[in-house]
């Protein structure tokens, strides 16, 4: 016990000099010291802002540089607001399931995981920009550029998400033993449930070439992600429903540059 306390104290001292790259190779003990440390939430938030903004810029720039700037603001906002909205329920679920952490420490653990996602995405941003340079632009007659970039984003986000969750699970296993799997599943479920809705509110991220460049869609706060999925499902099984939900072509005259429709 005394040895553990000494080790944790030593880890906390080392964590005070933590740089962002150390998050990538942190052991569960170091992550625990990190989440217990005063100011770790602010530092994780800063890393999320940096990493997600960089990746957001590379994500939106294919459609339009202005959308790149918008997404550089929106992607950190999405990650931060998802963590904040789920902080209370994640902290409570963790305590019920066996992790004796205060709610702030649970939030810090989730934010550290999000920060790792953001840092991995930031490292992949130059590659995404290179792919953006290599694929046909938004004015091209084919959708191949849109589709290749879409797949690249899915691969990058999936990779970053899997790595961060594997790391989070390793830490949870050291902190909560057998309860770790339940806690991870509970956190994942709430984060995905809320994150999907918030990403629907904050769209567009990637930019449909047929839609104008906007910070938020005009119907950002009408309906929700799950209604939208349900109506798509109805459209697939019932063509009449599909016609009813189909949106008329855009009549927006504020964006009349060539190729922007």
């Amino acid at each position: 016990m005394a040895l553990c306390i000494v080790k944790l104290f030593a880890d906390m001292r080392s964590v005070q000099q933590t740089q962002w790259i150390d998050l990538c190779r942190a052991t569960p003990h170091q992550v625990e010291a990190w989440v217990q440390m005063h100011g770790s939430i602010a530092r994780s938030a800063a890393w999320i802002a940096f990493g997600a903004a960089l990746y957001g810029l590379s994500m939106g720039v294919w459609r339009d540089p202005l959308l790149g700037v918008y997404v550089a603001i929106k992607l950190p906002l999405l990650m931060g607001s998802t963590a904040l909205v789920t902080a209370l329920i994640n902290g409570l679920l963790a305590q019920i399931l066996g992790l004796r952490f205060p709610i702030a420490a649970s939030l810090s653990a989730v934010l550290a995981s999000f920060a790792l996602v953001a840092l991995i995405l930031a490292a992949l941003a130059p590659l995404v920009l290179f792919i953006t340079w290599c694929v046909p632009g938004v004015d091209a007659t084919t959708r191949i550029g849109h589709d290749i970039l879409g797949l690249a984003h899915v691969a990058a986000l999936a990779f970053a998400g899997v790595v961060a969750n594997v790391r989070l699970h390793q830490s949870l296993r050291a902190w909560a033993g057998k309860a770790s799997r339940g806690i991870l599943i509970a956190w994942l479920a709430t984060n995905l449930f809320v994150g999907a809705q918030l990403s629907w509110n904050l769209r567009p991220f990637f930019g449909d070439p047929s839609q104008p460049v906007q910070f938020l869609r005009a119907d950002a706060f009408e309906g929700n992600f799950y209604e939208s999925v349900w109506s798509m499902f109805q459209g697939v099984i019932d063509p009449k429903e599909r016609k009813r939900h189909e949106r008329p072509p855009t009549t927006d005259t504020t964006d009349d540059r060539p190729g922007r429709r």
């Binding site: 150390d22 190779r25 840092l119 991995i120 490292a123 992949l124 941003a125 130059p126 590659l127």
Partner: peptide, 19 residues
Amino acid sequence: AICLPSLYVFSALGMARVR
């Protein structure tokens, strides 16, 4: 140059003690 940032982060994920 394009792959340098990802190599830095990936090597750190592999627990390499690198700057």
